[in-house]
Design a protein around this nucleic acid. Structure first.
Length: 549
RNA sequence: GGCCCCGUGGUCAAGCGGUUAAGACAUCGCCCUUUCACGGCGGAGACAUGGGUUCGAUUCCCGUCGGGGUCACCA
């Protein structure tokens, strides 16, 4: 028996690889176009690192006129979850990332290089495994888990490098006839790659992010087809990225150490190797040490977290883009109104080591992003968020016309307010503007410097009877507050007061504070004049009465 | 432990043999201001460490220390 016959015995139905080579022809793209992919396993939510990869991939494809593929790596059936693919598609969509090709739903896809879900590509992998076996570059292995376990124990005890290689690769040297016998006898098998590498030889690799790296060659006879007939990651990576005509593999740097293996696999299969870009992981500070941000320990590792908190996806993307290319910040400052898509991203500018995720900084980015939104956009976004996460807020926003006025306070001008960093902050910052909330609450008035109850009552009464007029413009309005201040022995100007504090009980700021607290229950608010314009005469009068009680 | 990568203020980071070692966030102070949020100005704060190489090292080389990644029929 020869290799060819052995291969036929193992995979009798597999098509020749030429069939697939023809089915998935080279792409007709312009020179320099990057074909990239994001290839998560559907094990649950999208990780912040996955989003990071996706943003980079999306930009690379956009900038070069290339293609961004979403492929699902579901070859480990033990880790599947319900609707895993939909969750990934939807999460990316939340951040405005739409792949050009690949999965679009749990079982739907677009593109002609599919299937894009690995579990649907079993035949393809087997065809290529068969091809390797035929050439003697792969072989069936009959090692049981117990055997492997024993081997590992021996290696550990002897303090030598663990793994299935060299003299430890027991079934590598099995004759074709012996192997065929075992197969016919029904013994379970996997397919292993027959590595020709030597551990004491070096291999050079140029990574688009990490630069030049030297590794020992791979000499492990890794499993390429598992007992269940599905491929391992390594084999699927080689076959898929070749057949999908991927040009640039952008993936997390935890894969860096398997580059020698991948290179050898591509070579054995006769594939052209793609360019690799290994991105540094996003880290988390934990008790003074850095570690990879983790799904299990860190809620902020899931992109859904940002959605729940109400941090606009644009802010998350800008923050991540800044981690990717730190010159983004400067670009944003110089081009405050441009779309992210105009920023020129460069792989070569990525940091080689992992950045600690900084939520405070993200919030700062977010604050700036939000400050540029129109009141209409803020209203829409807050409402959408509230519908999902805060019914009380949703209810408050029912009066759209009024809410727009609230969001319009100090907004839409040259120096918009920057006091909202996330939608979950909104309720607290505007709740007092709503009569049904404010008037029905037990407001604890803290009037600040002026705290004599009688004095406060007199000030409020005088203001409402003698000065208040809804029609006043801002200047007139404020002049009247100055008049009011003078009337009660407070300085018209803060400066006057500071020069001669003994002449006054306080200054116009103290009086303003009394009005502010009476109307809003707070000492700190946006511009009082604008607030009063929004509240309207009716509400102002009611609030004043409430405050006097 | 083997292999690989990395080490500039609290965090993200410019820097590519000669710099007063940028900038952003955070922090502190002052100014602006009727409060707040902004905005402006300023302060404090860094080249892990020891050896080389060099007229000169944050920058190049080696060691040490520290951090990270990886060593599955998981991806």
């Amino acid at each position: 028996m020869n290799y060819k016959e052995l291969a036929d015995l193992l995979f009798p139905d597999a098509k020749p690889v030429s069939y697939y080579e023809e089915k998935y022809p080279a792409r007709n793209l312009k020179e320099g176009a990057a074909v990239v992919r994001f290839a998560p396993s559907p094990t649950g939510f999208v990780h912040i690192g996955g989003l990071y990869q996706s943003i980079i991939n999306r930009k690379l494809a956009d900038q070069t006129g290339g293609v961004f593929i979403l492929r699902i790596e579901d070859t480990d059936q033990k880790r599947q979850i319900e609707n895993g693919v939909v969750q990934i598609v939807d999460s990316l969509k939340d951040f405005d990332i739409i792949p050009d090709e690949g999965m679009t739903g749990e079982n739907t896809e677009k593109g002609i290089y599919g299937p894009y879900k690995q579990s649907d590509r079993k035949d393809i992998y087997q065809a290529f495994a068969k091809y390797l076996i035929e050439q003697g570059k792969a072989y069936p292995c009959f090692a049981t888990p117990e055997e492997l376990e024993e081997m590992r124990n021996k290696q550990e005890a002897a303090k030598i490098r663990p793994g299935y290689y060299g003299i430890w690769a027991k079934y590598r040297t099995l004759s074709v006839d012996e192997a065929a016998e075992k197969i016919k006898a029904g013994e379970p098998w996997v397919v292993r790659f027959k590595s020709m590498g030597q551990e004491d030889k070096k291999i050079k690799h140029h990574d688009l992010i990490k630069g030049n790296i030297e590794f020992p060659e791979n000499d492990q006879d890794i499993v390429i087809i598992k007992a269940d007939g599905l491929p391992t990651y390594h084999f699927a990576h080689a076959v898929d990225d070749h057949l999908m005509r991927v040009t640039h593999v952008v993936r997390a740097d935890e894969w860096l150490s398997s580059v020698p293996l991948h290179l050898e696999l591509f070579k054995a299969l006769g594939f052209k190797t793609p360019k690799y870009a290994h991105t540094a992981s996003i880290m988390k500070e934990d008790e003074g040490k850095k570690r990879k941000i983790s799904k299990r320990k860190d809620p902020e590792a899931a992109v859904s977290y940002y959605h729940e908190e109400g941090i606009p996806s644009q802010a998350v993307c800008e923050y991540l883009l800044n981690i990717a290319n730190s010159n983004f910040e400067g670009w944003r400052k110089a081009n405050p109104d441009k779309d992210i898509s105009e920023f020129k991203f460069e792989l070569g500018k990525m940091s080689v080591s992992g950045a600690v995720f900084d939520l405070i900084k993200l919030l700062d980015v977010s604050k700036n992003v939000i400050s540029k939104y129109t009141k209409e956009r803020i209203y829409d976004e807050v409402l959408t968020w509230a519908k999902r996460y805060d019914t009380e807020l949703e209810e408050m926003l029912q009066d759209k016309e009024y809410s727009l006025k609230v969001f319009g306070i100090e907004r839409g001008n040259a120096k918009p307010r920057k006091d909202i960093a996330k939608w979950s902050d909104v309720k607290e910052s505007i709740i007092y503007m709503y009569d049904n909330k404010f008037l029905n609450s037990n407001t604890e008035y803290q009037f600040g410097n002026i705290n004599d109850k009688e004095e406060i009552k007199k000030i409020l009464t005088s203001y409402m009877e003698k000065h208040f007029n809804m029609q006043d413009d801002k200047q007139t309005w404020f002049d009247k507050i100055k008049d009011l201040s003078e009337e009660f022995g407070y300085a018209r100007e803060v400066k006057e007061y500071k020069q001669n504090p003994e002449n006054y009980k306080g200054h116009v700021g103290d009086v303003s504070t009394v009005l502010r607290v009476a109307l809003t229950g707070r000492q700190n608010t946006p511009d009082l004049y604008e607030i009063m314009q929004v509240l309207g005469e009716e509400s102002i009068k009611t609030r004043m009465e409430k405050a006097k009680k």
